[in-house]
Design a protein around this nucleic acid. Structure first.
Length: 147
DNA sequence: GTCGGAATGT
DNA sequence: ACATTCCGAC
């Protein structure tokens, strides 16, 4: 938690109120761009109580509902300096996660998606023993499952 | 609302 | 690679 990019470069207010954990940022895997990824951002909003009228866990394990799509889009746009962001564009980015097996859509449930925590937990918490075969004992910081 | 192709940008 | 933008189809 020492030298890190400004989480809210577009905000003149409330700058230092958010302490993003290190794992919410892209590991040094990709040379140049260490920009926040959408699914990291989503997880961070879900972690914060102050957003649970905007986005929250709901339903099955890993399932979450975007209660206020416009607001989530606004926050994401603020984070990425894309003031023209909206839910239509944000949801397209979420849809790209289907093939990467980071997210699924919960069909029939409005604004509801589901994380594939099998993958995510391994990426973010490589030291957690999930009881699955092939999980190495933690001596590396990051396991890159989809690169 | 949701999906996914296509072009474009970083 | 990972979105952003636009948009036709369902």
């Amino acid at each position: 938690m020492s030298e890190r990019e400004d989480p809210w470069p577009c905000l003149s207010v409330n700058k230092s109120r958010f302490a993003f954990p290190d794992w919410a940022y892209k590991p040094e895997s990709s040379p140049g761009s260490r920009q926040i990824q959408l699914w990291h951002f989503i997880l961070e909003l879900l972690r914060k109580e102050e957003y649970h009228d905007v986005i929250a866990w709901q339903g099955d394990y890993g399932e979450f509902v975007i209660k206020d799509p416009d607001e989530v889009a606004r926050l994401w746009g603020a984070r990425k300096c894309k003031p023209q962001m909206n839910y239509d564009k944000l949801s397209r980015a979420l849809r790209y996660y289907y093939n990467k097996r980071i997210l699924n859509k919960t069909k029939g449930k409005r604004f509801t998606y589901k994380f594939n925590f099998n993958k995510l937990v391994l990426v973010n918490y490589p030291f957690i023993d999930m009881g699955s075969a092939g999980t190495k004992r933690g001596h590396t910081n990051h396991i890159h499952l989809f690169t």
